[in-house]
Design a protein around this nucleic acid. Sequence first.
DNA 1: TGAGGGTATACACCGGGTATATATCCGCAG
DNA 2: CTGCGGATATATACCCGGTGTATACCCTCA
Lengths: 174, 174
Amino acid sequence: MSVPLTLLGLLEREPSHGYDLKRDYDTYFGRGRPLPFGQVYATLGRLARDGKVVIDEVAPGDGPERKRYVITEGGATEVDTWLTEPVPAEPHLQTVLFSKVVLALMLDRPAAEYLDAQRAAHLQRMRELTEIRRSGDLVDAILADHGLFHLEADLRWIDMTSARLGALAAEVRS
Amino acid sequence: MSVPLTLLGLLEREPSHGYDLKRDYDTYFGRGRPLPFGQVYATLGRLARDGKVVIDEVAPGDGPERKRYVITEGGATEVDTWLTEPVPAEPHLQTVLFSKVVLALMLDRPAAEYLDAQRAAHLQRMRELTEIRRSGDLVDAILADHGLFHLEADLRWIDMTSARLGALAAEVRS
DNA sequence: TGAGGGTATACACCGGGTATATATCCGCAG
DNA sequence: CTGCGGATATATACCCGGTGTATACCCTCA
């Protein structure tokens, strides 16, 4: 989730090098989706190129040499504005679910069946997330709640769209 | 929203060429976010390279020559499986909102204030979407509902997370 | 002593997104 | 009748983020 800004944020906490940054990211934000090494160094390279971080020193560590990255003033202000400004709230008015429904109607496919299948998949995932929330730690619970709330939102939308399928079909085929 | 598959789907309806595909996309799926021309031709090029479509004929039209793209059997089955299989249901357990909250706590920023600002931004956008739903056509209404449901989900999450901020801070700073 | 595992980085590739350049035809103002 | 703007139509080059793989170093232990 916005890897460049997150790494920059971790660097505002304290200077570090790629390998440790990856581990910090994984423990705090990874949650089963560890950050690939390649992405760490590619991102650090771009941050350095854009003046958001600088390489402070190259020192030998436990193994090969390590490059210590330090955030710059520009990088710090970028983190600050990112944290301060709210994330854009559903600006797009577009969704994969909707695209699929419209295309299904266009191509004379059983859109209602597709929506039923989607509902079943969502319910299945909600059961999984409920279990995670029950058995996991606080962070897992918070993230599971996020997923659950959004799955519920999708379910409401699926139900409402199922009911409006006829009207939508008329609109699409016009 | 998955532009390649959507264009492929439009091509399953009938063979067409880039310019018209862009217009179809905009009328059915664009909703204020028109598809840039560059993306159309780049995507068509990749689809052709991967054997999902073929160039049927090059003919003069109203203006310069047009390339007529036709979907192949492979492309049609791809559309079919895309439509048939449900979209993955919140598999990631990651979110920008969560990253921001954790980073704010790490950096001793006023996370509660940030959440308040986010709540305000969401409420503002909900008012806009409510107006769109009221005044727009059916498609606008359906898409506005989708946005509204998800904004509500975020609001619930924001409230719940606000209440758990203390416990989360303890976890993060450990 | 040399094989394996942990530490640490670099490189090459790909897809999607974006901006810009280019070419053709038509209508119409001068 | 000329040439200019606008609609039609496509191509190209670039960037970012994501992914996989190669490389190098050091330590431990059989």
